[in-house]
Design a protein around this nucleic acid. Structure first.
Lengths: 150, 150
DNA sequence: GCTTGCCCTAGAGTGCTGTCTAGGGTTTAG
DNA sequence: CTAAACCCTAGACAGCACTCTAGGGCAAGC
């Protein structure tokens, strides 16, 4: 049993365009063609596409994914290289995750300000401060309202 | 005290090109100009650029960041809208984080296979399986080595 | 007054990842 | 036999976020 590109598109959520694009980029060298030149996807192919999707979803570049797939196509001899690649990738993904978490914390800090009962006072004070800075340096005030008490 | 674009570039890690690009995109309407037409960044401006950076680092699109900055420029009246935006953004970032974590788990599964003492056997068996699939469906075998023990 | 090292704008170019179009072949049901 | 619904390729186009170039202004030191 094999699947057409449309069926694979529905199974994976990748558009037909994307599947053909990936093929063009050398990500799907394992997909065979039938006698009419149509792509005939097997279950094993789907499993590999799933792996490609995981790598893509974690931010790996297409060029790097192609490198990984190339290793897969060369068989068991490249297990060590694959391990090295995936370890390095995991490391970068984890670093990226940490960075995002940190930035999210700063956003949460902003949110706390906005959700506090003193939000208006805090924000007004901040705006006064930046307007004061512009004033001191003889710069135009770019803000909508001028809020400068005394 | 104000900062030149070069100083801000060094402080923030954003290239001068990127800072000017952000300005062109309407992300820096708060940055004033001195008498020579040069951008004069204040400390308050740096703080806002920091916020922009947090939003960008968590994947917010420039267009959405501009919307947020527009709210900031309108003063305390838009606190509610800012809160709504940041809450929605936090939700999408958290969803994205979860998705990445899930995909990373699948990559870890692959890594476990590669790191196991039976790695060669497992990978060989997988390759035999996919080659068998191709054979059964009368498709060419795209793999480097044919490993098909009876 | 001239070189050096900044600053500016407008707009072209790049890299990546798709997405779509044009032109054409195949398969199946009526 | 033909219409509908698939499939194919090559290559154009798009969206995003920069990155760079060309052409020119300003400020400080020699």
């Amino acid at each position: 049993m094999t699947y057409s590109i449309k069926e694979v598109s529905e199974k994976t959520g990748l558009s037909i365009y994307t599947l053909r694009f990936y093929d063009k980029q050398g990500l799907l060298p394992f997909v065979a063609r039938n006698s009419s030149g149509y792509r005939a996807f097997t279950d094993g192919d789907l499993s590999l596409i799933h792996t490609i999707n995981c790598l893509k979803n974690t931010g790996m570049k297409i060029k790097a994914i192609r490198q990984y797939i190339d290793y897969v196509m060369q068989g068991p001899a490249t297990i060590k290289q694959r391990e090295t690649m995936l370890l390095a990738h995991r490391k970068t993904v984890e670093a990226e995750q940490r960075k995002i978490a940190e930035n999210l914390q700063e956003i949460d800090y902003k949110l706390n300000v906005y959700q506090s009962p003193d939000a208006v006072a805090t924000v007004t004070k901040e705006q006064q401060f930046v307007q004061q800075e512009k004033l001191v340096n003889q710069l135009p005030n770019p803000y909508a309202q001028t809020i400068l008490s005394k």
